[in-house]
Design a protein around this nucleic acid. Structure first.
Lengths: 342, 342
DNA sequence: CTTTAGCACTCGAACGATAAGAGTGCTAAC
DNA sequence: GTTAGCACTCTTATCGTTCGAGTGCTAAAG
């Protein structure tokens, strides 16, 4: 038995209904509320029975309505993505309101974006800062912060990539540091991080008086991608609006995923192409989030610099609203960060 | 009818029990589990009746046990604070484990501290970065980040106070900026922020070629305390361990307070003296947190620089554990930030 | 062959009554 | 002042019943 046009229509109606109500939906509801060419409930019933057999619907128990399966949502979002992902103007406005202040640090922009998305969608939003892959170094500066410590500033095409505190020998004056900075800038400007690493090793042989400092610089550069602590989350409490998380233990499990950096990153990982990555239920790959869905996408600034934005919520997510919001936001964010950029 | 020694003992026993179980505690429980000189349940009953009259106990309904009132907790913590607030060595060890990595940025330290406190106490922890009041400037540096932007680094007694991105005129080369930095350092070193503000105004008249830059520096310094975005929260999901928040709506309300910067700050506000600030139930001053308690305290680095650490949980909080943890952590944090300092 | 009306059947949710248990308050005895 | 005993209260759990939503099937109509 194949999937035909009418079955699809009915399935979509069921999904729409379930997304709004979170209640198993019955044949009568569909034949009344949604107009599927005036079919009677009995006909719908037959179709629903077929849809169940096809794996698109589940029945919590015999005498309840049906609820969409993960597979159904898959089909649903597939359909959605075929259509327009444009955001209606009024929603766009609501999003933009969050960005009316003057240009600020990347962190702030990221945080505002997360806040904005979560406010508009009523789900929990996650935004990561843009991460440079092959960014080139522009400027290196060591700033003294105490007798024995200096701050390393690495300015790249994109702004400040890294600001780490280094321990340095007592004997170095601010002027020394400036000299070293100047030298490093001359030597490293235009290089990628990888190239810079090698170069530093070579330099440190030549200038062995500053060997110790250079070694710490090297160490800092090496770790430079390990500590991008720039994931912002907005609307954590939104999760608790949905009945699927009215059980405290379930809610706790999901919330705690959000608190675990690694898991969160894994969850949000988006395909680097411009399209959406949608994970439904078990597809999230974590038991804690097996009744969640995650919609994420990358945004690009420049050629090789991308960040991720995403939303997490129950599997019966309002995909049709979330997708345009993310789509719009990814563009807005790219723009904001490109020229507002640090 | 006065409060005597025995009544107090009984009350404390009731509180201890309720803190652990979250269930109304009856007279029998007290006379059996806790040994109050082998008094019978009937005697305890009489005393409990008195305690209720005195406002220390509430009765959810006639045939249930009693639960401690806010007033009871008040007395309880008052007693606690009279005693030692030292942390047992094994707990101290558990806390210290979170800090085994090399020295890092203030943000990291703050975040780790929040994480550590929440892990050990099983409550939600909040830590704010140390805020300088009359800190003195040590070093000023402008670092070019693009043609038209520079990063202002203001190194103070305490480390980096402020890192703001400034828009600067196109014409300024890195060398120009360095020159300005040097000049500013010479002029401003040793000053407080307030003094620096005035001074900058005077300078900008003298060096009117760099007027524009100086004006932006001034603006940045003026806003320097407005944007301390450095509040870290650890263990948000811990809240959901407690039955008082098994109702999703209650949990949501509290969680959302944590997401609202202003409210969070208000909640954590601690008396600047070294002692603990404890807010119980309504004392938190917010309807959302009327069944929460907040224990907070300031930690000091140097004479005039303080941050706040605190814990939020149900009113039946394990104050006796929380207080030593905070006490210990405030000292550890001061130490870490003082010499590990950025 | 498709659609629909009709009807029996299923199963959870809601309700009410009942029983069990925890805890109190009071009284009377120690 | 303390305690044993007991009646009383009130909640929680349990069980059976009812109610209703929804299904599946069948047979008739289109």
């Amino acid at each position: 038995m194949p999937m035909d046009e009418r079955k699809t229509r009915i399935l979509m109606a069921i999904i729409d209904d379930y997304i709004m109500t979170a209640m198993p939906v019955g044949s009568r509801t569909i034949s009344k509320k949604h107009d599927i060419g005036g079919l009677s409930s009995a006909t719908i019933r037959n179709e629903m029975s077929d849809l169940e057999e096809l794996g698109y619907l589940d029945q919590p128990h015999t005498s309840a309505g049906r609820i969409p399966s993960a597979r159904a949502y898959r089909l649903y979002v597939e359909n959605l993505l075929r259509g327009s992902t444009e955001l209606p103007p009024d929603e766009a406005m609501r999003l933009r309101v969050h960005f009316d202040r003057r240009a600020r640090q990347v962190e702030d922009v990221i945080q505002s974006a997360a806040q904005a998305i979560s406010d508009v969608t009523r789900y929990t939003a996650v935004v990561t800062a843009p991460k440079a892959q092959h960014v080139r170094i522009r400027y290196v500066q060591l700033v003294p912060v105490s007798e024995t410590a200096a701050l390393l500033i690495l300015v790249t095409d994109l702004g400040i990539l890294k600001d780490a505190v280094l321990r340095v020998d007592g004997g170095l004056t601010p002027d020394h540091l400036h000299e070293i900075s100047k030298m490093l800038t001359e030597q490293l400007a235009g290089m990628t991080l990888d190239e810079a690493r090698e170069k530093i090793i070579r330099i440190s042989e030549a200038f062995h008086e500053h060997r110790a400092v250079l070694r710490t610089v090297l160490a800092a550069v090496e770790h430079s991608d390990a500590d991008h602590k720039d994931i912002m989350i907005g609307g954590r409490s939104n999760l608790l609006h949905y009945p699927e998380y009215s059980d405290a233990e379930k809610a706790r499990a999901v919330l705690s995923v959000l608190e675990t950096r690694d898991k969160l990153i894994r969850l949000m990982q988006a395909a680097p192409k411009m399209a959406f990555t949608i994970r439904i239920g078990d597809e999230t790959g974590m038991p804690e989030t097996s009744d969640c869905s995650v919609v994420s996408m990358t945004y690009r600034i420049g050629d090789d610099t991308t960040g991720t934005i995403g939303v997490i919520g129950p599997t019966r997510m309002q995909y049709a609203r979330v997708i345009p919001v993310l789509d719009y936001m990814s563009k807005a964010l790219a723009e904001l960060l490109r020229d507002g950029g640090t």
